[in-house]
Design a protein around this nucleic acid. Structure first.
Length: 309
DNA sequence: TGAGGGAATCAATGATCACG
DNA sequence: CGTGATCATTGATTCCCTCA
């Protein structure tokens, strides 16, 4: 048998071979494996066919190994040890010793609000793991097929519902607030709808979609319209524009909070009649990672941090 | 559900050795 | 040399699994 056909080979024969090589005795090899002596004799006969060698031959002192059998002993042990390792239950993930790299696709919103706390917690338990943050595109869960992305952190995309192989866990619910600069000349402690509409607006529009944002949708239901003076693609630039101008910006509450110390902003609840909906940030991953202990640990760490926010 | 194949067991045979 | 003991091999049968 030059071309080894593993599908046709009973790999258990290798276990029998190990017993035979160790015992040099068919009867004892049989009892070691819990077989009868003829069963082991048959196994030996099959091994002789497969390997094309007598393996054990009768001599005065009993059965002795052929040279081929002696050659086989050491690699056989190696192979069987590898097989045992392969079949053993997965090793438990040890955060303290892991040097794994985790890849996250997310937005600058998540990077600002979630990642500082996540990284702090992560490295407290696993000082040697590494994290790569990638910008989340508009394709939602489809991006976890790319370049080994472990998880997506962001609002669920509309296409995600089609994917049955993707798991989604809601982490935080976010509300919107309005911000103006702290010393804004015309805005006081409250923001009425009339005042809001009188102001120039900044719009955060990550994917540059034309139909405007959530605020515009809410206003349209009231038959109102606002003036968008400036449109920016990133969450984090907009507050700095607000700080130096008279524009009003509607953005996620936690971003406003996180920037509080470094940007002089006044945070105001949006006018209640606007009925602005909130949005969710979810943790999204592919089902294939379910049994991976490292991945599970990573997910639960993120979830635990998000719960505390 | 029944045919077919593979492996185990049972039973018998063959080979080797020790000992009188 | 003959005989009994021990162990491997062989053949028949049984059992179990798979697949049509």
């Amino acid at each position: 048998m030059h071309e080894t056909n593993l599908a046709k080979l009973d790999l258990n024969l290798l276990v029998a071979l190990r017993a035979l090589l160790a015992e040099r005795h068919v009867t004892r090899a049989a009892s070691r494996m819990g077989l009868t002596q003829p069963a082991m004799s048959h196994a030996l006969a099959r091994l002789r066919v497969v390997l094309g060698d007598p393996l054990l031959v009768r001599k005065r002192a009993g059965m002795t190994l052929t040279p081929r059998a002696q050659e086989l002993a050491e690699p056989l042990e190696r192979v069987l040890a590898d097989v045992s390792k392969l079949l053993a239950p997965p090793e438990r993930f040890d955060p303290a010793r892991s040097t794994r790299t985790f890849r996250i696709a997310s937005s600058d919103y998540v990077e600002l609000v979630l990642m500082p706390a996540v990284l702090a917690r992560l490295w407290r338990e696993a000082p040697n793991v590494r994290v790569q943050l990638r910008t989340l595109g508009a394709r939602g869960a489809d991006e976890i097929d790319d370049e080994g992305i472990d998880v997506i952190l962001g609002p669920p995309a509309s296409s995600d519902a089609d994917r049955s192989d993707v798991v989604m866990q809601k982490l935080i619910t976010e509300r919107f607030v309005c911000v103006v600069r702290e010393d804004h000349p015309t805005v006081g402690k409250r923001l009425t709808l009339e005042r809001l509409l009188a102001l120039p607006h900044a719009l955060i529009s990550p994917h540059g979609d034309e139909q405007g944002g959530i605020v515009d949708t809410a206003l349209a239901k009231l038959g109102k319209h606002r003036t968008i003076a400036v449109e920016v693609p990133h969450f984090l630039v907009a507050p700095f524009l607000v700080e130096r101008t008279d524009v009003v910006l509607t953005l996620a509450e936690r971003v406003a909070r996180a920037l509080g110390p470094s940007v002089r902003l006044r945070v105001l609840p949006p006018p209640p009649e606007l009925r602005l909906p909130g949005f969710d940030i979810s943790l999204v991953w592919h089902e294939r990672h379910r049994a991976d202990p490292a991945h599970a640990w990573f997910r639960s760490t993120i979830a635990a941090v998000a719960k505390k926010l």
